[in-house]
Amino acid sequence: MAYSDKVLDHYENPRNVGSFDKGDPNIGTGMVGAPACGDVMKLQIKVNGQGVIEDAKFKTYGCGSAIASSSLLTEWVKGKTLNEAAQIKNTQIAEELALPPVKIHCSVLAEDAIKAAIADYQSKTAGGDDKADAA
């Protein structure tokens, strides 16, 4: 299968690989996919008091396109507010990485991952302080 240069670049030099402490209240964790399907993405965001994503990390079990999709996503969400990050669409990722049709599901998974991470963060803060909503 022919991969685009951008996929290869992210695959060879993945950005923001690693993990944050899941228990930290400022961290939102999204884990999507399933091993049996061939891909699992874990995306974590660190959100500051203004509701802005300060940092992001990922780990991905999956093909090169899945790794590239999640690596790219961590770059994109950094500096974005939660609302902005939630607007990211899989089609943007697929387009940026020139994913072939059989690999579109990787970008879908990445979109699911950021949504799951945001939801996790919001569920942690819900009922507590309202700072996130102030953004």
């Binding site: 399933a34 091993p35 699992v40 699911d112």
Partner: peptide, 24 residues
């Protein structure tokens, strides 16, 4: 493996067969 969330979970002692994976 450094990139793999499954490897991380395995090292943390998580039994992967017991995890409820979200189907997609």
């Amino acid at each position: 493996r450094e990139l793999s969330p499954l490897w991380e979970m395995f090292q943390e002692g998580v039994d992967l067969s017991k995890v409820q994976w979200a189907a997609h």
